[in-house]
Structure formats: structure tokens, C-alpha cells
Design a protein around this nucleic acid. Structure first.
Length: 316
DNA sequence: AACCATACCAACCGCGCAGGA
DNA sequence: GTCCTGCGCGGTTGGTATGGT
């Protein structure tokens, strides 16, 4: 037995909103508020719309101070950083971008930003949509997680095209031990991705360790705290605490902050290569991500949405 | 000018969660 | 503890605009 519909589908209007409907809804909400009940709202004001549709229209379009289009580079930076950190948590990302809605950011990411980052590679390396539908070993992980891992590795390979220790037993850094979840992700991605890409999983340079030890701790702890998750001092570190001199985290933890470290390095163009600059236009002028990371960790204001698998993966 | 492909975006859908009965 | 209801979220769809042939 399915869930009861939220409204009488036969008697509600669907599709684009007219200006009259917009005026009705906007006027009412500005004067009386939603009354805490979106479902009942359309009847109150004589709109033949589903309550959910009213809510969406208000939140995404009619609400005051909504910005549409014209994303700045700073906003691009923030979206990229947060997507790689937390995945497709659009509402959380939107909370960090005043005037932006989750829907707007989601559309922007799916239609433009993602293509800038992954576009060309995806065509040749990602499985077909049919593959994904039928399952090819990837079904145990979200597309978002796979995409983020691929994105990270793509950035990695651009930055360190000669680094091949991940699957090179002769390399002094081998084996680069991943945690079980990441091991699984690597294995699954490896089944479908370009093998060359998988050779480029490198740790960040030691100089970056201290900053990322701190920022990742702050970030993850801040997220956890904002969501009511109490992380004991001794276990709050997804990366090791930095005490005095920079200190490399254990190998199994490296990929956790490698996400942050490498994206930061790339975005700030420290490791930019010519080929990257030409192929990934969005990185040409990106900078200042460090600041973004820091304020994000300090000012993160997540709602009560349950934590997603990506972070749970880290915690595991 | 007509057709097609692609990009973009508003809106819809269904699921999971929270809170109240 | 269970059920019900509404809300919020993320994924997806469908319509329109734009560009290319």
C-alpha cells in the first residue's frame, strides 16, 4: 500500500505559475505567514495548487531577497568545496550562500559547474546511463560519493601526473592504505574508471598537513556539533590533531583530508598545470578557498537533516 | 527557414524524518 | 510503541531557450 497523496491530484493545477497566483501567494504569506501548514494554505487563499507546490514556489521564487543566476566565482568556490566535502546536501550548501536556494544551486551544479569539473572525462570514463540503471557494482554507493571520489582523483591526477604509488608496490609510499569504505570505493570505481586515473592517488605535501589537520577537524566537528552529534575530544579527529610541528596523519586517514587538501591546492592554483587551466576553465581564477573552509567550519549552520553517508563513512 | 541537439531552469515526485495523537 | 501527517530534501522530469547544421 502506497502513501496517501498529499492532496487531491485531480483538482490541483500543475505546471508554471501565473503572475496572479504568485501575487496571491506572496500577499498572503507576507501578511499572515504560512500558518505552519502548507497543505491547508492553498485552500485558504483559493489557489488550486498543492501545498507542496506553494511551498516550493515561495521558497524558490517568491521569498524576499532571492537571487537568480549570476553566480560569482566566490560562490563557485564555495559550492565546489562544499560539494566535495559533503556531497549533494544542497540545503546545507544553500545555507552558506545568502539569497540562493537549494534548487538554484542544484540546477547550477548539475547544468554548469559539474560539467566544468567533470565534463570531458565523464564522457569517456563514466559508465553509460544504462550501466548505472542495470547496476555494475556501483549500486552500493551513491552516485554522489562516486562522483566526488572521481572528481578528487581527477584533480589529483591533474596535479600530480607522475605520482603512481597507489598501486605501485615499488614506490616507497606503497601501500597507501585506505579505510574500508574508501577501499571499497576505490575498488568499485576502479572497475569502471580509467585505470590511469587510479594511479594518481597521492597524499598532499607535508606542508599542508597542519592546516588540513586543523581545518578538517574544525569542519567535521562543527558539522557534527551543529547537528547535535557530540564527538568526544579524543575521537573528534577525522584527521590527527596537530601538535606543534606539522605531523602527518596515519595512512588510513590521509584520503579523508586529501579531499580537502587537494581541492584547496588546486583551487588556489598552487599545483595548476597548463593543461588543467585550459581544460578546466572554472579553476582559472579560483582562489581564497582556505578562507572559505575556515569560515565554513566556524559558522556552519546545518539544519536537522540526518547526516549523510559520506560523513558517516569518514566516521566509520 | 527548418530541424535537431544541447543547455538551462522551474516544477514535480517520492522518500525519509520529526513530531504529535 | 505505533500510526498518521506534514515538512523538507534530493533526484528527476518536462518545457523553453539557444545554438548549430
Amino acid at each position: 500500500m502506497g502513501r496517501a497523496p498529499c492532496c487531491d491530484k485531480a483538482n490541483v493545477k500543475k505546471g508554471p505559475w501565473s503572475s496572479e497566483e504568485d501575487v496571491k501567494l506572496k500577499d498572503y504569506i507576507q501578511n499572515y505567514g504560512t500558518g505552519g501548514n502548507w497543505i491547508a494554505l492553498p485552500q485558504k487563499i483559493g489557489l488550486k495548487r498543492c501545498g507542496k507546490s506553494c511551498r516550493l514556489r515561495w521558497l524558490n521564487y517568491l521569498r524576499p531577497n532571492i537571487k537568480h543566476g549570476g553566480f560569482s566565482e566566490e560562490e563557485d568556490n564555495i559550492i565546489c568545496s562544499l560539494y566535495i566535502s559533503i556531497g549533494s546536501r544542497w540545503s546545507i550548501i544553500a545555507a552558506q550562500l545568502p539569497g540562493r536556494t537549494d534548487n538554484d544551486i542544484k540546477n547550477y551544479w548539475n547544468t554548469r559547474l559539474k560539467k566544468k569539473l567533470l565534463g570531458r572525462r565523464k564522457k569517456s570514463q563514466a559508465g553509460s546511463s544504462q550501466d548505472r540503471k542495470e547496476g555494475n557494482g556501483m549500486e552500493t554507493l551513491s552516485n554522489s560519493a562516486i562522483e566526488r571520489l572521481q572528481l578528487h582523483m581527477q584533480l589529483q591526477s591533474l596535479q600530480n601526473p607522475n605520482f603512481t604509488h597507489y598501486d605501485n608496490p615499488d614506490h616507497p609510499m606503497w601501500p597507501c592504505k585506505l579505510n574500508p569504505i574508501q577501499e571499497k570505493m576505490m575498488q568499485l570505481v576502479n572497475e569502471t574508471a580509467n585505470p590511469m586515473m587510479m594511479q594518481n592517488f597521492s597524499p598532499p605535501t607535508p606542508q599542508k598537513v597542519e592546516y588540513y589537520a586543523q581545518s578538517s577537524n574544525m569542519m567535521m566537528t562543527g558539522i557534527a556539533n551543529s547537528m547535535g552529534i557530540n564527538i568526544p575530544e579524543s575521537s573528534s579527529s577525522l584527521v590527527p590533531e596537530s601538535e606543534g610541528t606539522p605531523q602527518a596523519p596515519s595512512m588510513e586517514l590521509q584520503p579523508c583530508w586529501a579531499f580537502q587538501a587537494e581541492i584547496d591546492d588546486l583551487l588556489s592554483n598552487k599545483g595548476a598545470t597548463t593543461s588543467m587551466s585550459t581544460e578546466y576553465d572554472c579553476f582559472k581564477d579560483m582562489h581564497g578557498v582556505k578562507d572559505n573552509m575556515t569560515w565554513w567550519s566556524n559558522e556552519f549552520q546545518a539544519n536537522s537533516t540526518p547526516w549523510d553517508s559520506s560523513v558517516l563513512d569518514h566516521k566509520q
